[in-house]
């Protein structure tokens, strides 16, 4: 017990901030490399529920809200962690996910949201058990995901890259969203 114990805590906090800063620097570097190469790094089985090696792209977001034209990466992240709960038109967002141990779910969280599965699970648990949010709708596979989003107004979910195309005769238009980085690529390519 010394009079400087509180400063000890501050020192520990300082070390923590330094560690985090270094990690961030490495992360930013890794992220830049990832963007340049357009290859996922930490999860090689991105969106790989069926054929891991053939799914290099991050999973694709699908949503059932015909009047909402565009969503940002930031909005997406806060929706899937339970913080933003309404579309701008006031309709409730219904988040649809696969089970937490699904490779596609994990790929979606890491590659699209840039978060970690345990982190997202913790955020949801805190919201559910303090009365702030309903849990996401959990479906068993990508067919159930597609059906749930198509049939649930205000729903948002994800599919392996390239699986989010509308099929002839579909009742509702399923909008897909590839993400800002791919959108930038499309724009720069003049598409």
């Amino acid at each position: 017990m010394t009079p400087f114990r509180f400063f000890t805590l501050i020192t520990v906090l300082g070390l923590m901030v330094t560690t985090v800063s270094l990690t961030l620097l490495f992360s930013i570097n890794a992220y830049a490399t990832l963007q340049l190469s357009n290859q996922p790094s930490s999860v090689q089985s991105a969106g790989a529920q069926d054929r891991p090696s053939e799914q290099p792209h991050p999973p694709q977001v699908i949503l059932n809200n015909p009047i909402f034209p565009e969503i940002s990466e930031q909005f997406l992240r806060e929706v899937f962690s339970g913080k933003m709960r309404h579309w701008p038109d006031g309709k409730l967002i219904k988040v649809v996910v696969l089970k937490s141990d699904s490779p596609l779910h994990q790929a979606f969280i890491q590659l699209r949201l840039r978060m970690f599965p345990y982190q997202v699970q913790r955020l949801w648990n805190k919201r559910i058990y303090s009365g702030r949010a309903d849990p996401p709708i959990v479906v068993k596979d990508i067919n159930a995901m597609r059906a749930m989003v198509l049939n649930t107004p205000g729903a948002i979910g994800y599919l392996p890259y390239g699986e989010g195309k509308n099929k002839p005769g579909q009742k509702l238009e399923m909008k897909t969203y590839a993400g800002l980085s791919q959108r930038r690529n499309q724009l720069s390519a003049g598409q």
Partner: peptide
């Protein structure tokens, strides 16, 4: 806890939410 939860569309903007 036991509360009434009100989350209206006050801002009409995807970047804001109120509860």
């Amino acid at each position: 806890y036991a509360f009434v939860d009100w989350e209206p569309n006050l801002f009409d903007d995807a970047n804001w939410s109120f509860k």
